[in-house]
Simulated scan of single mutants.
Amino acid sequence: MDAKNIAARRRKANPFTGRMALLSVAIPAAAAVVVWLAFLFLRDVAGGFPPLVQAIAAVAAGIGGFFAAYLALHWLVDGYPDWVKERVQPFVFVGPAVALLAWLLFIPTLRTLYISFLNARGTEFVGLANYVTVFTERTLLLAMRNNVYWVVIGTFASVAFGLLIAILADRSRFETLAKSAIFMPMAISSVAAGVIWRFIYYYTPEERQIGLLNAVVQAFGGEPQAWTSLVQPGNNFLLIVIMVWTQTGFAMVLLSAAIKGVPEDLLEAARMDGATEVRSFFSIIIPYIRKTIVAVTTTIIVFSLKIFDIVMVMTGGQYGTEVIATQFYKQLFTYNNPGVGSTIAIVLLIIVVPVIVYNLRTFQQEGGFR
């Protein structure tokens, strides 16, 4: 008996009744109505309550509502015939997450794309005028140039230092201590890292310098500098140092794990053939961990394209340090120009998406998912 006949018999033995169809519509609709009523309550009624009560009510409504909706859907699907349950049940688990992603990511992306074709007030369709502005206005071109610095120099330095430290630390007796110290900056936020380095680069016109870098320069007889403002365009590279400081630990941890996966037999055979450590590194280790290097590199590229916190804390985008994200923020919230701001966001999305797609394809080729 072929598969089609078996499936037909299963459907005939366990039919999908009209009651099940009615419940399939009624229960999700009821869950949506309950969620909407909870939203209206939190918006219109709970607004007069103390902030703590509002927060507790929002958490209870959000978590409790989604949990109750999931239980209702699970109960509904559990009563389906087996041949229906096999097809529908995966969507019960994946569906809410997909719906949430659509609500929080996909729909806002479409709305942002629509706004990018409108003028500053959002009242008139201007076509591609905002895109022309993004690629011709001097400040925006400067921001793109600076982002290229962050992507190329920041990514290369982070991966290179991470790889170098991973190799050296694996051969040290103090491996755990060294890796902990290098990874520690990764544990703090970019804002905190910016505050720390702001004190390092700090400059005062007075004779006594409280910034660490200027204090060292002055101690050796040099002239203190306003590193993040007057030293242009070198101030961009001084900001990139902060990203390298935070991302080197991330690269080191992943690359170190990959290096430990290199078969010792290959390295021993290379040594017996007379290969030096440097030759073994470039001819065996690098090719073996190539996919990990690519994954780390693409991840840091995405991070550097979205860089915002460090620049805002250190310079606020002044002194020629603008990047795409700071310009998006200023156009939208400072200049009240949602058209250009949305256009910058779409341009950034277009740049980031190919990198993410490449990363996912690489992950799929390694068997990460089907």
Rank of each mutant, 00 (worst) to 15 (best):
N5K: 13
A7W: 11
R10D: 07
R11W: 05
V25K: 15
A29G: 10
F41G: 10
F41N: 09
A46D: 04
G48E: 10
A57Q: 13
I63K: 01
A68D: 08
A69W: 03
A69E: 04
A69Y: 07
A69D: 05
W75K: 10
V77S: 01
P81E: 04
W83M: 05
V88S: 05
V92S: 01
G95N: 06
V98T: 12
V98E: 12
A99M: 14
L100W: 09
L105G: 08
L113H: 04
L113W: 02
I115V: 15
R121Q: 13
R121G: 02
V126M: 02
Y131H: 05
T136H: 09
E137D: 15
R138P: 05
L141A: 12
L141F: 01
A143L: 05
V152Q: 05
F156C: 04
A166T: 07
L168D: 01
E175N: 06
I182T: 04
F183T: 09
S189V: 02
V195F: 03
F199M: 14
Y203D: 02
E206S: 13
R208P: 01
G211N: 06
G211P: 03
F220D: 04
F220E: 03
G222M: 10
F237H: 08
F237M: 03
V241R: 00
M243Y: 06
T248Q: 06
A251L: 03
K260V: 05
K260A: 10
M272L: 12
D273I: 00
F282V: 02
I285E: 10
K291S: 14
L305G: 02
D309V: 01
G320K: 08
G320A: 11
T326K: 03
F328E: 06
Y329I: 11
Q331P: 05
T334H: 13
I346L: 09
I350Q: 04
I356L: 09
F369G: 03
